[in-house]
Nucleic acid binder design. Sequence first.
RNA 1: GGUGGGGUGGCCGAGUGGCUAAUGGCAGCAGACUGUAAAUCUGCCGGGCUUCGCCCUACGUAGGUUCGAAUCCUACCCCCACCA
Length: 298
Amino acid sequence: MLVGPTAVGKTAVALALAARWPLEVVSADSRQVYRRLDIGTAKPTRRELALVPHHGVDVLDPGHRYSAGRYAAAAAGWISDIRGRGRLPVVVGGTGLYVRALMEGLFREPPLDARSRQALEGVLEGLTVAELVRWASRLDPAHGGGGRQRAMRSIEVALLSGRPLTHWQRAAREQRHFEPWYVVLSAPRPVLHQRIERRAAEMVQRGLIEEVASVLAEGHAAHAPGLDGIGIKEAVEYLHGERPRDTVAEAITVSTRQYAKRQETWFRHQLDGDVLRLDATRPPAELAAEIAAHWSPT
RNA sequence: GGUGGGGUGGCCGAGUGGCUAAUGGCAGCAGACUGUAAAUCUGCCGGGCUUCGCCCUACGUAGGUUCGAAUCCUACCCCCACCA
């Protein structure tokens, strides 16, 4: 598992590793799953994708919602396929929850009726955060807070399954698929900030706004699940006349920095397993060599 | 040159005599995280310390009034608008 914040250089290191082993990459990225948004989600380039087989990139349309659970199931499949081919699966990504879902397993989610879920969501949308939290706490006294999204999730599960969310979480987990070995890439904040700033400017130059405009032109709503990512959001704001064009790159830089910071926090505290931490300011080939030196095939 | 408005903590911006180290917001830092996670939240945020408290430095600059001033007065500097 190769993890770390955005723009830290995970792809470059993965490619360097590919020079040493016959490997295939399993992406753990909640945004690169969406087709079309190549620039906005900073996908590996076509050339990079051609060099090493990738899984988990471009698997659905921006109008559809994905989930950590769907990801975990799919990724487990890709991994066993890769092994079946006698090759080495390397999970690369920055979405902490997806990594956890895959490596540690989520709780066994009871079946929730999709239609009533959608109907319920319609109702919940109209409520204030305070109301949602109050309701969630009543349904599930152990509800831990965390704002709108988590309160909604808690209410949905409690109502549609008949049991509070924390009950399910205490009960069985999905099967734990793997014994993870994590390589965490990180870089000093100033370096990371610089890389992020440069990448944001490049995105706009390479046609981010046009890319988003063409996706919107296909009829996707501005709030479609695939379109609320960093970079996309800002482009949509510009296209809707809510922000001057010359502030787009700067706004993307700021949100990306904040996101990268949250990722650093996650990878600093939330990983469970063997962890090798590396300074990503070093050249990818050198990092790959160091990873190789620590790698002990099981 | 004249008239009017304004100069507040990294930035924006409240605050017109004590309740003000100074409401808010942004940025930053730290943290949480079990199926929307590039999401959703929480804490800290002038400096220092023996940090439920104490000390220092702060509201353009310099003086003054007052028991007490970011808030009132005077002079000066700078910015903006309009008039010449």
